[in-house]
Every structure is written in C-alpha cells, then in structure tokens.
Design a protein around this nucleic acid. Structure first.
Lengths: 338, 338
DNA sequence: ATGAAAGCGCTAACAT
DNA sequence: ATGTTAGCGCTTTCAT
C-alpha cells in the first residue's frame, strides 16, 4: 500500500506515447537526436501522467555522484548557518542535491555523522567543522573527497580563516589599550583547533605578559557564562577577556553583568565571529570577522571543482580575518585593580 | 577516471568470501538466516575491502523511500536553525537521510526548492515555511507527503504555533500597559501568513483602538530597520511597536536608537520568536516564544509516523506560544505625545 | 543456511 | 531518429 505516492516512470511515459524509454530519457535530458514532434508528445504525456525524473536512480545509473554532503558542527551557531548559506550560494540552483548532517552534540565523536554521508553516496563532503583527529580525517579523505572548512588539513582541500592572525589582532588590540591581565577563554581542545589559543599565548609572551587561559567545556553561550564566572571570581581578575567565539563572549558578558560589572569600563571583551548579534546597539561587541558566508561560498566552489577534477592538487584557501572594533573594549581603569 | 573513489560492492565482498550476494545483503541488514560463521567471514572481508553499504541503491531496490526532505525558508534566521535542530533530534541517529533545501531568497517562488526535493525522491518533505499558495500546497501534497511547519494547511500534516493567541497576547500586553498608538510591523504577505496581523488588528479593535499596520519588504533586520524608520518619522508616531518576528524587532530597535530614542521609555517593542538574542542583557526584548525547537521535533515525529502510515489522518499539532516579558516594554510616558 | 533470478528507475553504449 | 541491451548496487521472492 506504499504506492499511494508512487509516481510514473519513464517506462510509463514511453508506453503512453508509444516510443522507447530511451527517447524519454533523451528528451528529458535535452540530449540531441529526438525530433521536435516526439519531444512534444513525450512532454505532454509526462505532464498528463505526472511524471518526475528520479534523480537518485539517474545518479546510480550514471557512474558519477553529484550530491554534496554538508556536515555542520552546530547549526544553532550563526557561523555554521552562514557557512551553509554560503555553500548554497555557490551550488547551482537545481544541480547538486545537498545532503545535510548536523552533529548532535559536541561529543567529539562525529563518527556517525560523516559515516551516513558516505553511505548516502555523496560525491563530496564539505565539513565544517571537523573535530576528528588529523589521522582520521586523512582516512576519511581516502574514502570520499573532503573539503575541510574552518580548519586546514594537509593534503586535503581546505578553506579557512587565518586564525593566528585573528587571535593576534584581538590580543594586540587589548594590549595596545593598556591591558596586562588579559585572559583567553578557549573552547574544548581538538586536533587543529588550538591555533587561536596558541597565537594568543604567543602574542602575550611577545609583549612580556603572562597568558591566562581557561577552557570552556563547550562552545556555547552557557558554557561561556559558566567559565567566565570562574575567571571573574579570581582575586586578581583579568581586566580583559578574549574568547574563542561570539557565543562564548556573549556568555562572558552575561557573567560580567551578573556580577554587576559594566562594560567596557570594568571589563573589556573581544569575541570571534562577528556575528550579527555583536553589532547590535547595546551589545557592541568587538569581534574578529572570519567571513563565514565567504568561507562557505568558497568551499562550495572548491567542491564543485573537485567534483569535476578529482585529481587536481588540494586547494588551500586562507582568508584574512578582520578585527572589528566596537564598544566592548576600552583602556583599563586605574582602580580596577581588585 | 572517476573510479578513484569507487568503493567495493556487495558483489566484491561475496566474491571474496565465496558466497552469494544475498548472504552479504542479509548479513548487513541483520536479517535472520545467516550462520554466525559466514556472518563473521563477511564482515571481515567487508572490512578488508573497505565496503560501505550504498544507502541510495538500497532505497531504490526497496520500494519505500526513507529520506526526509527538509525545506527551510531562511537558514540565517534562528527560528529555522532551531527547527532544523529539532527535526534532527527526532530522526533516528543513522536512519533517515536529511536532504536539505534552503530558499535562496524570499522571492515567493519556492518552486525549484521543493521540486528538487521531489526529484531526489524523498519519502516526505518537512517544509518550514511554505510560502506557496494553499492551492499549490495541496498539489504538492498529492505528489509527496508533506509536513507543513509553522503554517496550518487543511488536510495536510501541520505543526504550528497558535499565532492568533501569540499576537493577541503581545498586543494585549501593550494595551494593558496603557499604550494606544500601537503599530504592527508585518512581513510581506503570503497565503497562510496573515494570522498575526489579523489577530493584532482584531485585538486593537476589540479594545476600541485603531490598528496601524506597516509591511516590511522582507523578514530581516535590515527590512525592519527601514520600515520602522518610516513608522517613527510619523508626526503622531506610535509609542509601541509589535513586530512579526525578532529580526524585524531588532531592526526597529536600531531605527529607534538611530533617532536617539531610548527603550522602553520612549518606545515599547515586542518581537516574536524569543530568539536567544532577545534574552541578552542590554537587548531584553519582550517577545513571543513559539517554541521553534519543539516545533521541529514534533514535525520530525509526525514525518516518521506518516512514513510508516501513509494513510492515517492528517496531523494537526498546534502549540501554544508564550509571551516572555522583558525590559523592552513599559507604560508610555505622558510627554511622549510628541 | 544458502543461492538464483527478477526488478527498482534510470543511463549509455551499440545497433538499426 | 529510434530501439535494444546491458548494467548501476541493492533487495526480495522463491527455490534448494
């Protein structure tokens, strides 16, 4: 009884018109060698029968796979939504199916996610963000072409932002304002995701300052709030915090207000993402723009290229992030020593 | 040369082990009737050859289609990201492929979007939000099972929030605070998407007040800012604005600040969505929560049910929204008369 | 427990 | 211009 929605096939159309299936196939793909007359007859019959091409069967018959698998770490994070919309922009209107896989939670074990994309026989996987180990990423890349977004992986198509430069710009901005006790609120640690913290630490040391790093247990606003609360409870609490991403910064912001602190006079804050929220009046969060939409757009383009040229050299597209200074950062006040 | 990534098939495994394809198929689906011994041999060989089941071919061979097509109006709107994550929660870990289709822009012509989902032969389409005419929705539903999220459609599985109640609650909240010049900032008009404005207008009239409605040309923050700027430039400008959604409200907020107004003393604002942003310190936007994640979760559940019972009666799940009062609303001040 | 064979809806040589 | 035939990788009767 599953045939309630069974649709007509090429055979049905062929029978109706009185021609072979081949002609129907040709007609629908605009292949040459079908007379105008029969073409019309075929389209008419198709319409009458409500025939729709079955893209899946077509893909199976053709050898090549055109579907694009998109893996998103956390769709509720604006960055990933932006990447998704960038990818969409790059893909042709009606060309490649987009098969989505979103991580359930940041459990580090993205296993199932990519696995299901592979079983769906996508022609390529765009992954933003891969949390797996470098080793495993290489294994996966052997099975299916991979475009790593947000994280550079050797020998694998990579589209990312220069995190070292971004973190340096953020840290230097705070140092230049006169801050000395600058903390970095990082996320959980994963292969390929420690660039920002390292660049921060290096920049601090280069300035003769002591790095103060705290890891949040997730990349969310709540995690940021919890972690920042600890940071702000310290006897010699930092006068500035630079966070791994905007949600974390927004969480830190809540923690600060909960303590009655006011920004930026008593605490300077720098986020990372330059999400729409950060530009809102009253939020005014200084943040590093990593051009997420652009990242997605380029990733989509790279994927398309890879699909048509499987053996070309791995792409390595690095965008330069941009520090957007707003009103959440200011020089430290003299009496904020305690 | 496309075979660089060609993976092993059941035949390859069968050959390697020295059994028939049938056994391999059985073994991988856990079908009964395969001895432990051969099962082991099969799995071993599969591993050796790097065999991966081809879910697409399997779907083709089986008659029923298990893939779920998800249509999202605007992924950069948090509501849709929430719906997506709700849907994900409802679908079994590794069960149903999720094929995504996102509208390029709000051009009203979602045509291609759903069309490509149909050609991808998904078993069901979860659509949030359908902008098409009622008539066309019914046509589509004849071709493939449809779950309409966010908008009730007669005879079609629908999962939505009681917009009339939400809009009424918002409007009454403002009336109760003492406002009389309350404007409604609506979005572009589409079939099935005028409930909020109508409920607002009705509530106003019921209170003996005159509705003041303005349509933004999109559902975005920018559109909201543009439209609100007009509203606030009126000689007898409203003392309160209730918007169709949060981005629109956030835009109105920017417009207000750009004019040097302060909230909520000089302008009360009520949004709709209760997005994360609205709860931020300094934003504090009073908003109607439509439980987007829950909407998605239920839609996923309904879709699964429909897949296993194509002929059941259409589901009609209506959630009750909740007004969340924050600090963007207050009584009008006496001297705000102009 | 195991295998043979037909078929899912389509494409792609290879005829005619 | 049109038709024939063999697959694509898998599931599923039906035999054995």
């Amino acid at each position: 009884m599953d045939n309630r929605h069974r649709s007509a096939t090429q055979s049905d159309v062929a029978k109706e018109v009185g021609v072979s299936r081949t002609l129907v196939s040709f007609a629908f793909r605009g292949a040459p060698g079908v007379s105008e007359e029969t073409k019309q007859a075929i389209f008419d019959a198709a319409k009458r029968l409500g025939y729709r091409p079955n893209a899946v069967a077509a893909d199976l018959a053709r050898k090549h796979r055109s579907a694009v698998g998109l893996h998103l770490l956390d769709i509720r994070n604006e960055v990933y939504a932006d990447i998704l919309s960038g990818v969409r922009m790059a893909l042709p209107q009606d060309g490649n199916r987009l098969i989505l896989s979103v991580s359930r939670s940041v459990d580090g074990e993205d296993h199932g996610a990519l696995e299901s994309l592979i079983e769906a026989r996508v022609g390529i996987i765009i992954a933003a963000t891969l949390l797996d180990s470098d080793e495993r990423v290489h294994e996966l890349a052997k099975i299916v072409p991979l475009v790593s977004v947000t994280r550079p992986v050797d020998g694998v198509d990579s589209v990312y932002s220069d995190d070292a430069a971004g973190a340096r710009a953020a840290t230097e901005h705070l140092i230049r304002l006169g801050h000395t006790r600058i903390a970095h609120l990082a996320g959980p640690v994963y292969d390929g995701h420690t660039v920002r913290r390292q660049s921060y630490a290096q920049t601090m040391r280069d300035a003769g300052l002591k790095p103060l790093l705290l890891e949040a247990d997730d990349f969310t606003q709540d995690a940021g709030q919890r972690a920042a609360a600890k940071l702000l409870a310290m006897t010699d609490r930092p006068t500035a915090i630079f966070t791994h991403n905007d949600p974390l910064a927004l969480g830190a912001r809540e923690a600060a207000y909960a303590l009655g602190l006011s920004l930026p006079s008593e605490l300077s804050l720098v986020g990372y993402d330059n999400s729409r929220t950060s530009g809102l009046h009253g939020i005014d969060l200084t943040s590093v723009d990593l051009h997420a939409v652009e990242l997605g757009r380029i990733a989509g383009t790279v994927a398309l290229e890879r699909l048509s040229n499987p053996d070309g050299p791995a792409a390595d597209k690095r965008l330069t992030p941009q520090l957007v200074v707003r009103n959440s950062t200011a020089p430290p006040v003299g009496n904020s020593q305690m």
